[in-house]
Structure formats: C-alpha cells, structure tokens
C-alpha cells in the first residue's frame, strides 16, 4: 500500500541531493515516532486512568482492595469480592487448561504425524479466532442451562462430605457460576498456552531426544526425561501468559459468572470479577461510582502488566538458554 504511493525521484542524480537526505531523515524519524508511540500509549494509559480513578482511590484508600462491600448507592467501593472472583475463575481456568494445552502441544510436536500437524494447528487457531462474546453467548444460553441439573446432582451427593462439600455443596441455581465461567475461560486461554508451549518444545535439541530413545526409553520416558525438564521454564511462562489473558477476559465472564458480590468457596455459586463488573456497571454509573470502575481498570492494568512482563521475561530467558545449550 505504502509502496505504491512513492513520490518519483530523479534517478539521474547520483550525487546525494539535499532532498534525498531530508527524505531519509524524515522517514527514519517517522519510523522512530511510530515505535515510540507504543511507549507513549502505555504511559498515557497509566497516567490518564490513574488520574481519573484518583477520587475513588483517595476516598477508599487501601480499602478499595481489602473491603468486601460494593455498594454504589452508598458510595462504598470495596472490590475484594471481585479480586477474589477474578482469582478463583483464573485458577479454575489454569487448572483445567494447562494440562490440556501441554498435552496438545506434546501431541503436535512429538506424536502426531507431520500431515496432521497443520490440522491440529488449525483447530487451535480457530479456537483463538472465536470472539470472546461468542464463547459468552454459548456459555450463557447453552452451557449454563445444561450444567444446572448436573450441578444439582453433584451437590446432592457430595453436599455432606468434608472437603468436597464446601467446594461443590450448594448453589447451582442458574448454572452461572465460578465453575462455569472458569471452564469457559479455560477453553479461551488454551490456544495461547498451547502455541507458546509448542514453540518452547520445538527448541529441545533433536540430539537429546534421540539419545534418550537410543538408550531404550519409550516415547513417554523420552518426553519425561528429555523434553519436559528442558522446557519447564518456557511452560511456566506460557502458563503466566494464559493467566494474564484469563484475568483480563471481560465479556465471556460477564455473561457466565452470574454477577453477585460474594466470597464463597462454593464453586457452583455465582460471583463477580473485576473486568466483568466494569462492563456490566459502566452504563449506569456516574461520579464516584465511575471513578471506582476506572479504578478497577487501573488495578487490572497493573496486574496484567506485572504478570505479562514476568511471563515474557521467563519465556525469553528460557528460549535464550535453550539456544545456548
């Protein structure tokens, strides 16, 4: 596109003209500006959102994160139940997704025949391409109604048991719950964990795998002895990238978590998460309430930046070490 819009330049002039030098400097300046735009935008996000959220932060203090009472009508904004909700759904998502993603990645790199690999990649890519709101739609209109009877029968059976009873004992009224949201999130973060893990697995040296096989190891023993230890760091990074995605996912969670502000160990109960609350309450908020919602955005921004930079640093270090090995 840009290539066709070239201004014609006199080709006969082989000595460097001033015009050419100016164009050169202008172009490199524009490129530099575009690169710096990333840093500027990130800085502006931090500054603008913090300054608008400041009224809420100033009023609530640390209570913003430690008080478990969110009452917009009384100007009380304690987001602890949402922090808890975000934590619980992310934990469920990771527990369900990490083993599956590592399985798919191992399947692609170590087991599946070459012809099949692109088919698996296509499935994972399509899973990533489905918009989050479509996951939410499916979750609220299909998954939630279908799991309700299942939730009921599980809670009837395990309701009185010591540990399981406190996790799966009560609730399950509408099917919109921590568990539903967490499992749908698991599906949504599987592509990113799978693709990063696959890249890490691909860096394991051929020689080490062949050596393990030559010593008589079965394929699983080769994977356990040669592949997994080598790629452990990278897989931790991949998991953290998945965590970053899960914490920030808004719409699918908003539709499936059920939005009630409570802290409970019952996974069949409905809850609330930080991003979903922003989306759900934004329309009818104003003043201090909106400042508090922007404040949730600030907390989310800080948390995802921390998790993602940690993850990127770990992945980069793992890949560097592999290449050195």
């Amino acid at each position: 596109m840009t290539a066709t819009a070239l201004p014609p330049e006199a080709p006969s002039d082989l000595t460097s003209s001033d015009k050419g030098a100016v164009a050169d400097r202008a172009f490199s300046g524009a490129a530099l500006g575009a690169g710096v735009a990333i840093l500027a935008i990130l800085g502006l996000i931090a500054w603008a959102t913090i300054s608008k959220a400041w009224p809420a932060f100033a009023e609530q203090g640390f209570g913003f994160l430690t008080v478990d009472r969110w009452a917009p009508s009384q100007d009380v904004f304690g987001a602890l139940s949402m922090v808890y909700g975000t934590f619980v759904v992310s934990a469920i998502a990771l527990l369900a997704s990490v083993p599956v993603s590592i399985g798919i990645a191992l399947f692609t790199t170590e087991v599946a025949p070459r012809r099949m690999r692109s088919a698996i990649t296509l499935v994972v890519d399509l899973l990533a391409a489905v918009p989050s709101v479509v996951y939410g739609l499916w979750g609220v209109l299909f998954v939630a109604p279908s799991v309700t009877p299942l939730f009921h029968s599980i809670s009837n059976v395990v309701g009185d048991w010591p540990l399981l009873g406190s996790l799966f004992g009560g609730g399950g009224g509408s099917g919109r719950s921590f568990l539903t949201a967490g499992l749908i999130l698991a599906l949504m973060i599987t592509p990113i964990i799978t693709s990063v893990t696959r890249e890490v697995l691909a860096t394991v040296p051929r020689g080490e795998k062949d050596a393990a096989l030559a010593l008589g190891a079965t394929r699983w023993e080769m994977i356990r002895g040669a592949v997994l230890p080598h790629s452990f760091g990278g897989m931790v990074g991949a998991t953290m990238l998945g965590l970053g995605r899960a914490m920030g996912e808004t719409i699918a969670v908003a539709l499936t978590i059920g939005s009630s502000f409570q802290i409970t160990t019952e996974l069949f109960e409905s809850g609330a998460a930080m991003p979903s609350t922003i989306a759900l309450e934004w329309g009818e908020s104003s003043g201090q309430h909106r400042a508090a919602l922007i404040g949730l955005g600030v907390v989310l921004f800080a948390a995802t930046i921390a998790v993602n930079s940690g993850a990127r640093a770990i992945v980069a270090r793992a890949e560097r070490r592999m290449r050195g090995a």
């Binding site: 690169g35 603008a48 922003i278 989306a279 955005g297 989310l300 930079s309």
Partner: peptide, 26 residues
Amino acid sequence: LARTIRFMADVMTGVPSVVMGVFVYV
C-alpha cells in the same frame, strides 16, 4: 530503545481490552 519497545509491545498485547476501553473513555 528498540529492545524496550519490543518488550513493551509484547506486554501491550496482554493488556485487557476492557482497559483499552476505559483508557479511550478517559
């Protein structure tokens, strides 16, 4: 500078979309 921008671009892909919405609103 280039290494910083590269790293920050990677980090920026992880910023939740709802935060971008809040940012543009502000």
